[in-house]
Amino acid sequence: MSIDENTAARVAKLARIKVEDDALPALAADFNRILGFIEQLNEVDVEGVEPMTSVTPMRLKRREDQVTDGHQQAQVLANAPDAREGFFAVPKVVE
């Protein structure tokens, strides 16, 4: 499996990270080295093995479905780069 520049550009897009065109060859090369290392996993016989979902045998906890928190608008917005009138502000999303 070899990653070309088009694939690297597609992955960057999926990850929502802007990568300039001139940086794509080096990125693709890095991907290929890392994926080459990962390829070793193909040597392992995993027939009939369950993929791990939880490292400790535990059932996820449940709780009553009731409100335990809230009414903290100021704290929620305190770290926003742009907050207006009690909301997060972002560039126009819908034309």
Partner: peptide, 30 residues
């Protein structure tokens, strides 16, 4: 960080999820 986020995006992307991510989780069980 960018490199790892993108590697993660790749191994979880359609068509590669089983080959990479599920296989790795099986190896983790072993």
């Amino acid at each position: 960080v960018q490199r790892r986020v993108m590697i993660g995006t790749y191994v979880l992307s359609a068509g590669f999820y089983d080959a990479y991510y599920n296989r790795a989780r099986k190896v983790r069980t072993l």
